[in-house]
Design a protein around this nucleic acid. Structure first.
Length: 395
RNA sequence: GGGUAAGUAUGCAUAGCGGCGAGUGCAGCGGACUGUAAAUCCGUAACUUUGAAACACCGCAGGUUCGAGUCCUGCCUUACCCA
């Protein structure tokens, strides 16, 4: 359960307690889609990197190794030897990201497996069943993430045509939101049923609902008001940072925040860059997740307290400094920029591992610093110092 | 001395078998990445220009042909083989 500890203006400092222990917010969840952090980071490594919560994915684990295998192995915690909280994403995002392979109906979504092309079906009940088998700490509701590109209207588009397209996108988003609400109610009922079954591994599995509504303020508010009545364990904002301008994301957060239950944890899904996170905390968000630190690390982009660094750039060829002199992660304690650059240039697997180690440590330390700043009533100063700085490319 | 094979943009490796204003891969350099179908993808690569063009001695020199990187002759270089 969520306990609000203190606030700096809208920025919140809290603690979320679960059967798998508690975690401090604001918190960044480290993404291990297929029950593994890509780049070769194991669960014991992850603890050293100050990770509080790991995120796994329903759709991916359902396909491989399948949720029944994981249930047989005692659930996700035992399977990957992680005893802290795990949040499972519902597969809703895959409805969006695997768009070419799917068909949406009222019952749920038909997919073609991206692995072998097999036809599969996931609806609210299936998603809850899978997540119950995975026995994660927190299950996400099965939602529909609307593609914000419906709002990408060419600037040379005639005014009346533009109005028509926006009306169309609004109507599409409205229907999608209503379906997401109906799915959420089914998720809640199904979770209640599953939690009470005798052979369920985690009888205390929590459920978070997801707000949708594209970049339409009225839809966002209306949807949030609807789902707030369902008294869920947490509330997420989904469907942002999927192609729309960053200002739109901040605008929607500003508009939705007053309608989110104050006593519940708030999760901004899939976000984001270090400065996105700082800005979202400033707008009342408690929980985050993003593939960016791990993916970018594998692609040789590294986050530092001075800004963003492309470690493969020539200027680091003989650089004897650690990646970030201010950092005390295992990579920075032991290796130089020149060495990490060399590993990337020669295609060594160690390159990705060292870079992911650093980036996750950086993100988890960022959250720690945000928490300390709120504790010390200095979040505003922290935001002013870092929000822009961390977004800059340094070379 | 004799023989065989090969010489293609900025480094390396290659495609080409009469219409080429010459393709590709690697390397180099730069960029992107937001609830992970991504250890991936994109750009760049003479000069002038800034967006429409224009542009490359395909080892060198000749020849055949409407047209040659491509066929013919000679030369140069490299590799290997035989003396």
């Amino acid at each position: 359960m969520f306990r609000l500890i203190k606030k700096n203006d809208k920025a919140r400092r809290g603690e979320f307690t679960t059967v798998h222990g508690s975690f401090q917010t604001p918190c960044f969840m480290n993404v291990g889609t297929s029950a593994a952090i890509k780049g070769g980071i194991s669960s014991p490594d992850l603890k050293e990197l100050k990770c509080q919560v790991e995120l796994c994915n329903t759709y991916h684990l359902h396909l491989r190794p399948t949720d029944t295998v994981i249930k047989q192995m005692g659930g996700l915690h035992r399977f990957m030897n992680w005893d802290r909280p795990i949040l499972t994403d519902s597969g809703g995002f895959q409805v969006f990201s695997l768009a070419k392979l799917r068909k949406i109906k009222e019952e749920g979504v038909f997919f073609n497996s991206h692995i072998d092309g097999k036809r599969i079906f996931i609806g609210p009940e299936q998603s809850m069943q899978i997540q119950s088998n995975l026995a994660s700490t927190i299950a996400m509701a099965f939602d529909e993430c609307v593609d914000n590109s419906v709002m990408n209207i060419p600037s040379d588009c005639p005014e009346d045509e533009k109005r028509r397209l926006i009306r169309k996108a609004h109507e599409y988003s409205r229907q999608s939101c209503e379906r997401t609400t109906r799915w959420l109610i089914r998720c809640k009922d199904e979770m209640k049923r599953l939690n009470s079954l005798p052979d369920t591994i985690n009888h205390d599995q929590l459920l978070f609902g997801i707000n949708q509504g594209c970049t339409f303020e009225d839809l966002r508010i209306h949807h949030m008001e609807q789902i707030a009545q369902l008294d869920l364990d947490g509330y997420a904002v989904g469907g942002l940072a999927v192609g729309e301008p960053t200002e739109d994301m901040y605008r929607i957060l500003d508009v939705v925040e007053p309608h989110m239950p104050a006593e519940k944890i708030r999760y901004l899904m899939g976000v984001g860059t270090p400065s996105n996170i700082i800005e979202a905390v400033a707008r009342g968000i408690d929980l985050f997740d993003c593939v960016m630190p791990s993916r970018n690390a594998r692609h040789a982009t590294i986050f530092t307290w001075q800004g963003i660094m492309h470690i493969t750039n020539r200027c680091y060829e003989t650089d004897p400094l650690p990646i970030d002199p201010e950092c005390s992660c295992p990579t920075c304690r032991n290796f130089t920029r020149a060495y990490v650059r060399h590993l990337f240039k020669s295609g060594e697997q160690l390159a990705g591992r060292l870079a992911v180690t650093h980036n996750l440590y950086f993100y988890n330390t960022l959250m720690e610093k945000i928490r300390t700043a709120i504790d010390n009533d200095s979040f505003d100063a922290f935001r002013k110092e870092y929000s822009e700085k961390l977004a800059k490319l340094i070379n």
